[in-house]
Design a protein around this nucleic acid. Sequence first.
DNA 1: ACCTGAACACCGTTCAAGT
DNA 2: ACCTGAACACCGTTCAAGT
Lengths: 208, 208
Amino acid sequence: MPKRRSAGSAQYHHGDLRRVLIDTALTLVNQEGTWNFTLREVARRAGVSHAAPYNHFADKAALLADVAARGFDGLRARTEAAARRHPRSPRQQLIAVAVAYVGFGVDRPGHYRLMFGGELAEEGRYPELQRAAEAAFAVLVRTLQDGQRVGEVRAGSLRDQAVAAWSLVHGLTMLLIDGRLSVTGLGGAGSDRYARAVATTLVDGLEA
Amino acid sequence: MPKRRSAGSAQYHHGDLRRVLIDTALTLVNQEGTWNFTLREVARRAGVSHAAPYNHFADKAALLADVAARGFDGLRARTEAAARRHPRSPRQQLIAVAVAYVGFGVDRPGHYRLMFGGELAEEGRYPELQRAAEAAFAVLVRTLQDGQRVGEVRAGSLRDQAVAAWSLVHGLTMLLIDGRLSVTGLGGAGSDRYARAVATTLVDGLEA
DNA sequence: ACCTGAACACCGTTCAAGT
DNA sequence: ACCTGAACACCGTTCAAGT
């Protein structure tokens, strides 16, 4: 039986409006490919007044920050899963992580763009978002660390190597999302191929 | 003597409002680091009514597209100048181009972000913008081509190599602009060092 | 504690009207 | 040909008031 809807007041209190707003915003981000939609539209779709969101978020940016943080969680999960599939060879693992990373972004252009483009990273507001982003970054670092230990990756600054790897997958993802690399036909396969080719070049450059 | 301001009507016609609007918008992009400013604000600073811009641009996005195109022109000029400084070694040239590329973005975060993030690339509107972007991309391609000819870069798909190089510098620039890589202190020197390290890894990966 | 409705100070864009 | 001022249909955000 429902928790507290007994007084027939047509669920005046939503129960979990905060989560509903995040879900709605995420849906809109993926549908529109942007976060130009209005906060009032989010409220409308959630079935509440346009002022209701302010009970749960300081402003529109705060809501978007939560949506972005959820994105980094998903990115981490997907790349970690890819890494687990290649426990033996860090080189194969790095390539698999790269393909998974790019695939995540290409599948959700709007969400990925928000994660990076939303000016939400500036000035250390939204610490939870920052933590989520760093956790996603850490997957690359661990893979490279394993590679150094096994001797498949040359010794050297782990941070520099990780920056190179992250720059590469992030840059490729953005260029693909922006439509700046013609992947005519092929669909997702085209971006997979690019990711694999590009990651292979990197692995060669990192060879011991 | 002035062209046609003889009737003392306080320069009713601006003469070159179109260019003034682009300059004003560019100044705002660099000041704010975003293109969230309003079109009305641009008009205000240009000293015209809020409706005047519509005589020269279809909408706000069209104005921003021109600002972005000018950015790609500058990026091409800066990387080409860097390339000219190392005519002998394509390897050195590639590294110099990478440093120049990243430096351009780090110097003008708002402008660089607009060039890529403004959703202006989608769907082939703004063909002039697209041409400018491709011309900037071509600098990398030419450098790699020279490298292959001289034998400093391994034979293989020029396009794949160029995509790798572009992904790398683009990704690094974005991560630096977003403040996702702590360049504590050092200022621009920190990003130069990253650019050099990352580009060196790439060059190693492309070695013949 | 959470939600609503009215209100404020804005926008982008359009359009008749002026010169 | 280019610019203005009024007008339209919106926003994000605040706040008193309700339950």
